[in-house]
Design a protein around this nucleic acid. Structure first.
Lengths: 333, 333
DNA sequence: CTGAAAGCGCTAACAA
DNA sequence: TTGTTAGCGCTTTCAG
């Protein structure tokens, strides 16, 4: 049906061998200028495009990287993807995006699929369900470069790029306290996630730094991270049914933050909320959301640079680093 | 570095030929049950994964489809992508997403890149800059299946899936008029886009149906479709500087709608806005946005089904259809 | 400077 | 029932 031009067609048309054509196209020095010119001209004329599949098979690399995120429809991830693309594109790499929708099974399938498609490396942000990461370790041990961003797995020794979640959480919680609130609840995602742990830790540190104690009843985990309205709603209802109701909420995730605001609005409740979010329409919100903004684009860029460094390294790299980028607190009231 | 297991490894280990192994794995009837069992067991043991690149080269298809959208960070597109994935995934196809960022040059490069990567078909939503579609016609003529969604090109005879933009625009405009507004401005994107044309037409029809005349000064095109704050701001400033200021605005796009609200908020202006948007946090907005919501997920699904139908067709398909899905008006005030 | 041939992983005639 | 061989498009020794 769809018949692209091959190097063979050029060779036949020009009465040359395929190898000569190949060399001419790749501008090898061992080809006469005359032949080169003819080949290049003809290739251009018939709009020859090399077949990257054949190339991949031959060179055992695909010049593509796989990205594993939970949802594209999430400001943080879509911005990170833009960062990833901006670098990958410049360096001649393709980006293949796959979504886990926070499902562990889906993550395993996607990772395997990407690996079998011979991506040269993987940029991974774990799903909220993931506790077992053997699908990644096995690939990593066999030499597939992997860089984690945002939701990382400390068990795997490789580059990681994250936001300063602990500090961001600290600042947001501290801001609420400094604004006069004393009973600060914490709404967060699955407790497995590195980001949950880090943000929880920042929240607790802020309480302690201000002489407040940590009340476990004030901490609610939503395993679906805001994807399920009912789950978020239940958590908030439980919080608001406590004898000592919280007087402010610090939320640990993007979808969860907006979900929280929706629930509060629908329940006709008014309570200040601060939370992690990279949405670009927060200024339009009412009730407003004091937000912790992550440098999503930069995280994507940095992670990609590190991955390409691993991919293109001549010798296996043994030293890995965890880059931590600062967040930004946007106070709204 | 990263050495996957091949059919050859299995053959060698088991003392069989590669073809026997190949046949056993594909469960051909001409292989003894015993051999099959051995091969399958061993393949499982060493976690054999067929190399899809080799398969692609052989079968001249990649079991993947390319998607061309302007921005992933756009509710409509991210929802559409979810719809696309849901179908593609079930049918064993990979989805490769590429973003044009509304740039024509980028669109050409992406399309060519996808084509050269041997995608089996293309799902395209044109960039707002695109007027010349020869990069698509040439591929289409050479037999590459293409399905347009949302922003379509009528010049190419193929399947198309769109929302009922004209009716959606009519309803939104009509709603504003029925709410008592008489001087309704229209903020829209590039005039090349099919969606702009359709929505403009619905807007004009609503005015006429209500005995109002179309005032060209009330119609503003933003070539960057809301991506450039200044552009949106200028358009709105021009509108509000008119001797007869509009008393309501109908906006034709997602980013443009939120951009419009931001500008109005920042300029401290209050004027009712209705517009196309698929954001899922509109309920939190203040000022509110009466929205025209497109069935983005379904559009993605349908487009993918149609594309797979073209891809898997035994005989070339000559009859094409344009599916039009209904929008939903969500009144907010 | 150019050509012939092998090989990347896999499948499918064709033989045996 | 299984093995041999060729070929998908390309690069790269190795010969000429």
């Amino acid at each position: 049906m769809f018949e692209p031009v091959t190097i063979k067609d050029i060779a036949k048309a020009l009465g040359l061998s395929t190898s000569t054509v190949s060399r001419a196209l790749r501008d090898t020095h061992e080809i006469s200028a005359a032949t080169k010119k003819i080949v290049l001209a003809y290739a251009k004329e018939i709009n020859y495009q090399p077949n990257p599949i054949a190339l991949s098979l031959k060179e055992r690399r695909s010049k593509s990287i796989g990205v594993v995120v939970s949802e594209v429809a999430n400001s943080f991830f879509s911005q990170a993807i833009n960062g990833i693309e901006s670098i990958a594109y410049d360096r001649g790499y393709h980006v293949i995006i796959s979504q886990t929708h926070e499902s562990y099974d889906r993550e395993v399938i996607n990772v395997q699929h990407l690996a079998s498609r011979s991506v040269d490396g993987l940029l991974v942000s774990l799903s909220s369900q993931t506790t077992d990461i053997s699908h990644l370790t096995s690939l990593h041990e066999r030499g597939l470069p992997i860089v984690f961003f945002d939701r990382v797995a400390d068990e795997i020794d490789t580059h990681k790029v994250i936001a300063n979640n602990e500090k961001g959480a600290f600042e947001a919680t501290d801001h609420l306290i400094k604004s006069g609130y004393k009973r600060i609840a914490h709404l967060t995602s699955s407790s497995y996630l590195s980001i949950s742990i880090e943000r929880l830790s920042g929240y607790e540190a802020a309480l302690k730094a201000n002489g407040l104690s940590v009340n476990q009843n004030y901490i609610k985990h939503c395993l679906h991270g805001g994807m399920l309205y009912e789950e978020t709603e239940n958590s908030i209802k439980e919080l608001m049914a406590l004898p000592e109701k919280p007087d402010a909420i610090f939320v640990a995730g993007d979808r969860l933050s907006t979900g929280c605001l929706s629930v509060l609005k629908n329940l006709n409740m008014s309570i200040p909320v601060a939370g992690f979010s990279n949405s670009d329409v927060l200024d339009l919100f009412n009730p407003s959301l004091t937000s912790v903004r992550q440098p999503a684009f930069e995280i994507g860029q940095l992670a990609t640079q590190m991955l390409l460094q691993l991919i293109e390294a001549k010798y296996p790299i043994e030293e890995f680093e965890k880059k931590i980028l600062e967040t930004e607190l946007c106070v709204r009231s």
